[in-house]
Design a protein around this nucleic acid. Structure first.
Length: 488
RNA sequence: GGAUAAAUAGCUCAACGGCAGAGCAGCGCCCUGUUAAGGCGCAGGUUGAAAGUUCGAAUCUUUCUUUAUCCGCCA
């Protein structure tokens, strides 16, 4: 607060529009710099500088200006204005700036500028992702994204976690988390071959085959075995040909890994974490959320009655904050689904019949959106459908896995307690054809002072998707990478 | 990877076998305390691409491209 006041007093400094609008103060000189959103009535400039979704109304007088200069005040132009902040003479805003001097910093050809003061489709704006930040919707989304990222670090920092940077380039392709992108400096026109005719990766940059990471978990576990609690937060790459509104080829994942945690501790942390960052956004991004809530409400009006959601965006976020996530086992979920109406009426595309099959999206959605109507943590999945590193339960059939399912998003968190017993882990790897030799460094944690531990992965964009109320994951990352798309 | 749908002016859409249109944006003029300002006028098109059916195709058929939605993979 002190900083803001200092900026206001020092009139030679540029002041952020957010600081001006959030203060009651009037009758002082200030300089603002930003981009013209609209220019109404040859008199009123709606100026936005990205600090807030709200614009500052700048009042200019045509008579006081050089006509050539005046014509350059166009939608999209970057300008610097110095003037007095006064109580607005018109309705619709409390404050406005009476311009004393105005400088065009950067012209904007209004005819060629694709951002227009009307509803533009999200698909079109996605094609001009380099300019879409300048719209209200994307301004709100990406300020929100920033806040959520900041809250992630703050949460873990407050809890004493160490932020560990796990590698982006990795030589292990044994994690089974998905198809990988190859990293190479080999000349694709002239690939070196060994005696057997295979590609000779000894000639490659790292002297071996390398890929982009699909998960920092295995390296994260190494850190947890020293620091106790660590988290990673970095880009993750999956070369899956996934064409959905909730998959990206390049996305940001948060992966905490905690020594001495069991599955319950893991769930408790995940729930506390999600609630913390949502709470942070509610507290710090009220205006952006209110704008996004309105946008969502307008969108909902277009839908048929039964498809509309019962809660508004902010209401939905507060509901998540104030209610316990439902915790049930896979086995309980199967029972609920078996006895559910859509299963009995054969409304499900995939009818739930026996224990052991993986749940389909429609089943997850039924549990979350119809049955419990809140986030659900599913635990203790059949071992056969989960990864090699998950700890086996005493029943021999299930593993200590947990997936957190969110309405509209599906799986937002996937995690587990890890198998800390060397022999059991190796046995499991062998039966799942995971190359034991290649992961000897990972197995060393189980050889030297192994300890119970657990962790999870949270898809950051899926979190932003949920909090922003957007529906396509491509609209919550600045420059989405998806199959057949790596523009910008 | 599979299924379905869509593609018309810069943008958002209409025309659904018979002359391709509106709103917004742009340009010109007018108005001047506006609120995605308003008024009058002008300009803007190889209807995603290619082929076919037809007297006639934006409209029907086929192929391709791109996009969206759903499913699969998953965070």
């Amino acid at each position: 607060m002190q900083l803001i006041i200092k900026f206001i007093i020092d009139m030679s400094q540029r002041v952020k529009i957010k600081a001006i609008l959030s203060s009651e103060k009037t009758n002082y000189q200030a300089t603002v710099k930003g981009w013209v959103r609209t220019f109404r009535n040859n008199q009123f400039i709606a100026l936005n500088d990205g600090s807030t979704n709200n614009n500052l109304q700048v009042v200019v007088s045509e008579q006081d200006m050089d006509p050539a200069e005046f014509k350059r005040i166009t939608r999209g132009a970057a300008i610097s204005v110095t003037g007095e902040i006064i109580p607005s003479l018109g309705k619709g805003q409390k404050l406005e700036m009476k311009a004393a001097s105005l400088e065009i910093l950067g012209d904007c050809d209004a005819e060629a500028y694709p951002i227009q003061p009307q509803k533009q489709s999200l698909e079109f704006l996605r094609e001009i992702a380099h300019l879409r930040f300048r719209t209200n919707t994307f301004g709100a989304v990406f300020r929100l994204r920033h806040s959520l990222a900041f809250a992630v670090h703050q949460f873990f920092n407050e809890k004493g976690f160490v932020y560990l940077h796990t590698p982006i380039i990795t030589a292990s392709d044994a994690e089974g988390a998905g198809e990988m992108f190859r990293v190479t400096t080999l000349d694709l026109e002239k690939l070196p071959r060994n005696i057997d005719g295979d590609i000779d990766f000894k000639e490659d940059f790292f002297g071996r085959s390398t890929n982009l990471t699909v998960s920092g978990q295995l390296e994260g576990e190494l850190g947890a075995m020293a620091f106790g609690d660590i988290y990673t937060f970095g880009p993750t790459f999956r070369a899956e040909n996934s064409n959905t509104a909730r998959h990206l080829a390049e996305f940001w994942m948060i992966e905490p890994e905690m020594a001495f945690y069991d599955l319950k501790d893991n769930m408790d942390l995940a729930e506390e974490f999600i609630k913390y960052v949502i709470g942070y956004a509610l507290q710090h991004n009220r205006e952006d959320l209110e704008f996004l809530a309105q946008r969502l409400a307008d969108e909902e009006k277009q839908k048929p009655q039964q498809e509309r959601s019962e809660m508004g965006l902010i209401e939905k976020l507060e509901f998540v904050l104030n209610n316990q996530f439902e915790r049930i086992t896979y086995t309980e979920a199967i029972d609920i689904l078996k006895n559910s109406k859509p299963n009995k009426n054969k409304k499900f595309q995939y009818i739930v019949e026996e224990w052991g099959t993986d749940l389909q999206s429609e089943h997850e959605r039924y549990l979350v959106e119809k049955h419990f109507k809140k986030p659900v943590i599913l635990t203790d999945y059949p071992a056969a459908i989960k990864s090699f590193y998950m700890k086996r339960n005493d029943d021999g059939k299930t593993v200590r896995a947990m997936d957190i399912l969110f309405p509209g998003i599906g799986e937002i968190v996937g995690g587990s307690q890890r198998e800390e017993n060397y022999d059991k882990l190796v046995e499991r790897m062998e039966s799942m054809h995971v190359p034991v030799e290649e992961l000897s460094w990972y197995l060393d944690t189980r050889r030297f002072g192994t300890a119970p531990h657990a962790g999870f992965g949270l898809g950051f964009e899926r979190l932003v998707l949920f909090v922003s109320g957007m529906t396509n994951i491509r609209d919550v990352i600045p420059f989405p990478r998806t199959p057949k798309n790596a523009e910008f």
